[in-house]
Amino acid sequence: MTLNLDKPWQPVLDKIKTWARINSPWAIHFNSGSCNGCDIEILATLTPRYDLERFGVKLQGSPRHADILICTGPVTRQARDRLVRIYEQMPEPKFVVAVGSCALSGGVFQGCYNVMGGIDKVLPVDAYIPGCPPRPEAIIDGLVKLLTQLQEGAAPEQNEGENTSAAAVEGAEIQLDAQANGEAK
């Protein structure tokens, strides 16, 4: 898609796009080796007490539908490839949120033989939410911080999109099932 910046309506279109993106972040959640404490807290943010649907967040099952990849847990050797594949299957623009201390740095699992470290060893991470596990409020706080940043600076987000789009095209070329699970045994 080429953007012709000469068009007078382009800035307006961009503004509408940004508005829509900020108000409709659909998320997909992947656990790459977490103790599932963070997973249930992420699920808890959807329940009546916290209700992330207020911000338009929907938890999607298919990576094709999602904008935000919420990662929990340190990256284990086996989950690494699946994590990358899920990221590649997501259409642009996409963001990664790392939830929990393990996802940030490996946390307590640093030094375990099957752990590779934090999510940012594998994927570019846009927001970090520390906590073990973070409270649902802290997760909301992190998401709101990410969305606020998108509103303020659409520019860095676009740059990132260009950087990663090559990977996405590559990912699309490989025949992919909707889920990263057609793996050969």
């Binding site: 656990n31 404490g37 847990g73 284990t76 989950a79 307590v108 699992f109 375990c112 033989y113 073990c132």
Partner: peptide, 24 residues
């Protein structure tokens, strides 16, 4: 997929540290 090597991990941590590792 979630195998992290916790049991082996306890071997180079003290009992106090292992407790928090095993809690997770």
């Amino acid at each position: 997929y979630v195998h992290r090597g916790i049991e082996k991990g306890t071997e180079n941590r003290s009992f106090v540290q292992s407790m928090y590792l095993l809690e997770r």
